[in-house]
Computed example of a mutant assay.
Amino acid sequence: MKIKVGDIVARHSYKCDVFFRVIKIVDSQAELAGEDMRLLADAPLGDLKLVSAEERIKKREQVKEVEEKSYRLFRQDAKLMKQRSEYEGTDHYTTEPSYFELRGRVLHIDGDSFYLRKCTELYQKLGIPVYGVHIQEKEMPEQLESLLEMVQPDILVITGHDAYVKSKGEEEEVRAYRHTKYFAECVRIARRFCPHRDQLVIFAGACQSHFETLIKAGANFASSPERINIHALDPVYIVAKVSLTSFMEHVGLWDVIRNTITGDKGLGGIETRGVMRIGLPYIKSEKDK
């Protein structure tokens, strides 16, 4: 069967370990984007296997199980954080809850519109205010500053697809990565806009991104320390933790990374304060009455 743009495929040369969407075909070469991983790859059409509906369903069930585990862990942490907030905001549980929360606002810029939709759905499920924008990675630096001025976020996510291409250089060379240089340039632009790492918290990177470059550029959290693939939803779990943590508290690095799907081999960061603020008094709306 002829492979076309939009098909879900796997690579024979990699034992069909990752499922991809075909995003472009030029002559006999296909450009691929990971179906669940933020990975970009090229492959000859002859190396591709069309994934059947049954295989997609089986893979989706496996991925969903992992995603739900991360979601449950996050909800457990969120519940504990809320209990602490109630304790502080209600005179140590002696009165009715009377505070309101200003959760950190996220500007999420994503190079993949499909992933952006998935991430936005999860932000909404977690109760995180978000403004999402789909921009191709190469165009992100040109548009970032105007978006920062318009949205005025507490948290910035710069992500999409990336990959280490061995033929372009050694692993420590940024030029050997498809999109790390664009992510890093975005981080530098954002740091000129807001130099303080606790006033604008930044997550940057995708699959196999050059972690050290992104952290040195000014990111609080980034991928990928061991150059592995990261899951499409990993950035959401990291910044949601920051959004829901009080600005009076530090976000525990292990606490934030353990709730992700990929873990510390694919994600890392530096000590960072939360951005949520509690206010008084709480004014009941009609729906609360």
Score class of each variant (00 low, 15 high):
257 I>S: 08
142 E>K: 05
244 L>N: 14
96 E>Q: 11
1 M>G: 00
251 V>A: 09
143 Q>F: 10
179 H>M: 00
101 E>T: 12
102 L>F: 10
219 A>L: 00
195 P>L: 01
19 F>E: 03
184 A>C: 04
220 N>F: 05
65 E>P: 06
58 K>F: 08
75 R>N: 03
200 L>N: 04
262 T>A: 10
176 A>H: 08
256 V>A: 11
99 Y>P: 11
173 E>R: 12
94 T>C: 03
93 Y>V: 06
100 F>T: 14
142 E>Y: 07
40 L>S: 12
255 D>Q: 09
278 I>N: 00
282 Y>C: 06
158 I>R: 01
93 Y>R: 12
54 E>Q: 14
208 Q>F: 00
200 L>D: 05
97 P>L: 05
47 D>A: 07
251 V>W: 07
64 K>F: 13
96 E>W: 09
107 L>D: 01
18 V>S: 01
175 R>L: 11
6 G>Y: 11
108 H>V: 04
52 S>A: 05
59 K>R: 14
144 L>D: 02
45 L>S: 15
210 H>P: 00
172 E>S: 15
166 K>A: 07
184 A>H: 02
242 V>F: 07
88 E>L: 08
43 A>D: 15
266 G>Q: 02
111 G>A: 02
104 G>W: 13
150 M>T: 12
229 N>S: 15
256 V>F: 08
197 R>G: 06
164 Y>R: 00
213 T>Y: 08
76 Q>N: 03
20 F>M: 00
196 H>T: 06
15 K>R: 08
81 M>S: 12
3 I>Q: 01
136 Q>F: 13
152 Q>A: 03
130 V>D: 01
12 H>P: 01
170 E>W: 08
113 S>H: 05
171 E>A: 14
217 A>E: 11
133 V>E: 10
71 Y>T: 12
54 E>H: 13
175 R>V: 14
228 I>R: 13
242 V>P: 06
33 A>P: 04
194 C>G: 00
255 D>P: 04
236 V>S: 01
215 I>F: 12
202 I>Y: 05
6 G>V: 11
257 I>V: 15
259 N>I: 15
257 I>Q: 08
63 V>P: 05
162 D>F: 02
147 L>N: 01
273 R>D: 09
276 M>C: 09
176 A>N: 07
227 R>Q: 14
62 Q>G: 10
164 Y>I: 01
131 Y>S: 07
43 A>W: 15
222 A>V: 05
146 S>I: 05
26 V>I: 14
86 E>Y: 05
136 Q>T: 14
85 S>T: 10
164 Y>E: 02
43 A>V: 14
120 T>V: 14
254 W>I: 13
187 V>Y: 04
170 E>G: 13
145 E>A: 00
206 A>V: 04
248 M>Q: 14
203 F>A: 01
91 D>S: 10
217 A>P: 09
